[in-house]
């Protein structure tokens, strides 16, 4: 299965989405990410019990913060899928990349003058 998804995405692996901290997400935006996706296991299927549920709560908190500071909570998304759902993985990446393209560059990159090149090309 050689699935294509946009090269603009940088994958950061964590042992469990329960490891994803609010600060990881906020720092990604501080460094200029146009969008962040958190991908966890299906709810109820966390190997550690509730890691993905913690991630969901943290994600919601970060979305709220992003809305209030003018970056926009819609730039953060969380999905739950299994390791067997490669096709869906690629599809999500394409969808979100498209959505972020529509949103345009992050206000942080715009403000710091770093938003000069197109953020990504969507290939199917």
């Amino acid at each position: 299965m050689r699935l294509q998804y946009p090269p603009s995405v940088r994958i950061i692996e964590v042992p469990c989405t329960g490891k994803v901290d609010i600060m990881h997400l906020l720092m990604a935006f501080e460094y200029g990410a146009d969008g962040v996706i958190v991908m966890g296991c299906l709810e109820g299927d966390c190997h550690y019990g509730a890691g993905n549920l913690y991630a969901k709560k943290r994600g919601n908190r970060v979305k709220e913060i992003l809305d209030k500071v003018g970056v926009g909570g819609e730039r953060l998304a969380m999905y739950n899928l299994t390791s067997g759902m490669g096709g869906r993985f690629a599809e999500i990446i394409r969808e979100i990349t498209e959505k972020v393209m529509e949103l345009g560059p992050s206000p942080i990159r715009v403000a710091t003058g770093k938003a000069v090149r197109p953020i990504a090309e969507v290939t199917t």
Binding site: M27, I65, K68, A111, T112
Partner: peptide, 16 residues
């Protein structure tokens, strides 16, 4: 404190 500082940095940065 870290979260609040980050949020404030995002706010000030996006406001230019």
């Amino acid at each position: 404190a870290k979260v609040l500082a980050s949020a404030l940095r995002l706010y000030f940065t996006q406001a230019g």
